[in-house]
Every structure is written in structure tokens, then in C-alpha cells.
């Protein structure tokens, strides 16, 4: 079997594919045209192949999300790259008050097929304003769907799915994933296998190959998946606790329905995310699960976040702040103690 593709290549090929398949797709972003091809090279080759449908823009995040919304409103489909997800703050008004509202506030559904891609998260030493996980700030806005890329999901399916929804979508792509490889064919490593469950865009379920019900369930968005896997491995080999990991591609609106049948018999559910605590996606998931499983959950869902701090630049300091595999393992051990 040939080596799996890198996630950056998977995203790049997905962009090429949607532009090839649909001439109404336009891509906007800062420094995205060739030969530079974007700060993380996700848009490489697009401008060479699709010319004026790919536009390098001024440093105007609010403006370019607005332009994307305008293209989408008028009949195109638009994909906007925010160079660092942190800068999505500059586009918040366009997302909150224009794009999401316009799908719903005119008395009929108005289609705005707009995808805003946000390279996100820490672990790469970019410091406090280029390393945040801001998903939580976009959760709970009707008309704005929030997704996150993962190593288990194929961007070639995910991206067309988002564009087909006809409403503004944020796609978070954890920067630590870009250099990692995708998992394909159900195989993760020597211990774990995965499958995709629920309706598109699917939740990835990672578990032991033996089919036994797990002691514990971890839920994490794509960017935290590797840390969750590492915690699962340690919990199994050193603590003899079996886990399954659930990685949903859609973060909001979050439908717990497809996950509920997978949680029967689990002794603990732990949600791990990289954002700081307080009004988080993990808290939202925990709330849903408490509501649906109050009678069967043996103990409250735990939520593991990064420290309530800025994300430092120095490697060792950054590590201390961001959620790690050790924190996830610790949370599970404490809950099951």
C-alpha cells in the first residue's frame, strides 16, 4: 500500500477538485497565489490552474469575507482563507451579522455558499496571537456551521459537503495536522482501527480491533486527535483502560444522535479540546450528553482544555499551556479512580 497523503496535500487536492468540478467556486485569501501558494501552501497551484478565480487579497479579513459573501449571495460559491485563524476575529462582523443572518432573516432561506478556512491552533511556536483555537467563539450562531478537519476525514468529501450546504461554514484546520498523514482504510496503527459513523460529514470512531465495549470514550475535534490517540495508547498499555475515540467533523450545530448508541456501557466520557476553558465546544458536547444520558452516565462528562493563559512562543512554555496527551490521560484516570 502506498504511503498515505499528507493532510496539507489532501486539503490542496480537495481545493483543486472542487474548483475543477464547479466553475462557480472562487477562492480568496492573503498571499494565496503561486508561486507562494499561501502561508501553509494549501492553495498551491490553484492560481496557475484556475487564474482569476483565485485572488490574492489585501490584508482585510473582514473585507474579503464580505466579498466572499457577496459572491456567494449573487450566485457563486466562495472559499476564503484566513491566513491564521486568530485573524477571524477581524471577520467576525461579516460572519455574525451579515453571512449567517442573511441566510435566515429575510423571511425565506437565502443561500450563501461560503466556506471560511481557518488554519488554527498552537504547537508550532507562532506565539499568542497566531496559535489560538477560537472555535468556541463561533459556536451557537444559527446560520453559521462550524467544522474541523481531522486525519480521518477526507477533505475531498468534506469540502464539497460544506459547499453544498448553501450556508456560511467555518472550517478549522489545526496547523499541526498539515504535516501529518491521513488515516485511510480503517487502519490507525498496531493497536487501533477506525470507521466513519453517522451521516456525512461523519464522525470517526477509533477503537481496539477486538470489538469489546470500551471502558471510556474520548471525544475530540480533529486537531486534538493525535493527542487523544496517544492518551488512549498509554491508558491501554499502562493503565489497562480501554478507550474509544470519537472525532466529529461537524462541531456546530452538534447532533449527539449518532453518537448516543456508541456510548452504551462506557464508564466515562471525556471531551478534549485545545481552546481555553469557558463557553467551549466541549462544554456544549457535555451539555448534550448530560441531557440525553443523564440516567445512564455513571459520572459527569469531563472536559479537558488548555490552561487559561496566552499561548507562549518558547517550545517548553507552549507545551505547558496547551492541552497534552498527559492531561487527557490524567482526566480519565481521575474520573475512573
Amino acid at each position: 500500500m502506498s504511503r498515505a497523503e499528507r493532510i496539507s496535500d489532501n486539503l490542496n487536492r480537495a481545493l483543486h477538485q472542487v474548483m475543477e468540478d464547479d466553475p462557480s467556486v472562487h477562492v480568496l485569501g492573503e498571499d494565496i497565489v503561486d508561486p507562494y501558494g499561501g502561508a501553509f501552501k494549501i492553495t498551491k497551484g490553484l492560481s496557475t490552474r484556475y487564474g482569476s478565480r483565485v485572488r490574492s487579497t489585501p490584508l482585510s479579513e473582514g473585507g474579503i469575507v464580505g466579498v466572499g459573501a457577496g459572491l456567494a449571495l449573487a450566485g457563486d460559491k466562495a472559499i476564503v482563507e484566513i491566513m491564521f485563524g486568530d485573524f477571524a476575529g477581524l471577520a467576525f462582523d461579516q460572519l455574525l451579522n451579515f453571512a449567517s443572518k442573511s441566510t435566515m432573516m429575510y423571511g425565506r432561506r437565502v443561500e450563501i455558499p461560503l466556506v471560511v478556512r481557518c488554519p488554527t491552533g498552537g504547537g508550532r511556536g507562532y506565539g499568542p496571537t497566531h496559535s489560538q483555537s477560537l472555535q468556541k467563539h463561533f459556536i451557537g450562531i444559527p446560520g453559521l456551521s462550524v467544522f474541523e478537519m481531522s486525519p480521518f476525514h477526507d477533505a475531498r468529501e468534506l469540502l464539497p459537503h460544506l459547499l453544498s450546504l448553501g450556508e456560511p461554514c467555518l472550517l478549522f484546520e489545526d496547523k499541526v495536522l498539515y504535516t501529518r498523514r491521513t488515516y485511510r482504510g480503517g487502519e490507525v496503527d498496531d493497536l487501533f482501527v477506525f470507521d466513519l459513523v453517522g451521516p456525512p460529514p461523519y464522525t470517526a470512531r477509533v477503537r481496539l480491533d477486538d470489538g469489546s465495549p470500551p471502558d471510556c470514550t474520548l471525544i475530540a475535534p480533529g486537531g486534538v486527535a493525535h493527542r487523544a490517540l496517544s492518551a488512549m495508547r498509554a491508558l491501554l498499555l499502562e493503565d489497562e483502560i480501554t478507550c474509544q475515540l470519537l472525532v466529529p467533523a461537524r462541531l456546530y450545530p452538534f447532533d449527539p444522535g449518532p453518537l448516543l448508541p456508541l456510548l452504551g456501557g462506557t464508564r466515562h466520557v471525556c471531551v478534549a479540546e485545545e481552546s481555553t476553558a469557558g463557553g467551549t465546544w466541549g462544554g456544549e458536547v457535555a451539555h448534550h450528553l448530560h441531557r440525553h444520558l443523564w440516567d445512564s452516565l455513571p459520572r459527569p462528562v469531563s472536559v479537558v482544555c488548555s490552561a487559561p493563559d496566552v499561548v507562549p512562543t518558547a517550545l517548553h512554555l507552549e507545551r505547558d499551556v496547551l492541552v497534552q496527551d498527559t492531561a487527557i490521560r490524567q482526566a480519565v484516570l481521575e474520573a475512573l479512580a
Partner: peptide, 20 residues
């Protein structure tokens, strides 16, 4: 199309103009 937040329609109008 009218919308209620000052200034936010202008970038949208640029997008629509480019499509037109």
C-alpha cells in the same frame, strides 16, 4: 438588500459587483 450594521454591506457589494 438592506442590512442593519453600518459599513458591512460595502465589501458584500464589492463581491456582488465582481460577479455582475
Amino acid at each position: 438588500l438592506s442590512t442593519g450594521v453600518q459599513g458591512e454591506s460595502l465589501p458584500v457589494a464589492v463581491g456582488v459587483a465582481l460577479r455582475l
